[in-house]
Structures are given as C-alpha cells and as structure tokens.
C-alpha cells in the first residue's frame, strides 16, 4: 500500500488509496492508519502489511528544492 504524506503546518496528513487522515504527531497518525485499515478491512486479522509513505515535496518552498529534492520516505508495518 502506498500513501503520500505531507505536513500542513499543524498536522501530518496522509492520503491515497481512499484514505485521508491527519494528526499532529506521527505516533498518532500511525495509530489512526492502523485503526482505519482494520476498520475498512484493508488488512485481515493476523496479517502484516507494509504501508509505504512518500513525502510530498511540494510542501517544501520552491526556492529550497534546488538544494535538496528529498525530505523522507517511511515504511509503516501494520499488524492486522
């Protein structure tokens, strides 16, 4: 599963595959992602899934992008 993550100034936001969740900290966001996936049946009980989160670079001001084009990608392992 692949999602796009960005920051809106207050919250981290992940979107994609019909999901759109936000939370002020990554811990909370990860919990929300897990819960939502289980609720929506995107993951079966006892199963393990990797959620790949790619950072949306357009969060970063354009003038900075010429110096560095990558912020981070992360993988979250969700347990069903």
């Amino acid at each position: 599963m692949e999602l796009v993550i960005r920051h809106n100034g207050r919250d981290w936001v992940v979107e994609g595959d019909g999901l759109s969740l936000s939370a002020p900290t990554l811990e909370e966001l990860d919990r929300k992602v897990g819960t939502t996936m289980r609720e929506k049946g995107l993951i079966k009980e006892g199963e393990k899934t990797e959620v790949f989160m790619a950072f949306d670079n357009s969060t970063i001001p354009e003038w900075i992008r010429q110096y560095a084009q990558h912020y981070f990608n992360r993988i979250l392992v969700v347990q069903g």
Partner: peptide, 8 residues
C-alpha cells in the same frame, strides 16, 4: 519565507 511551497 514560506515562498511557493504548500506550507502557508
């Protein structure tokens, strides 16, 4: 300072 990024 935020320039043209999506951060306001």
């Amino acid at each position: 300072a935020a320039g043209t990024g999506s951060l306001t």
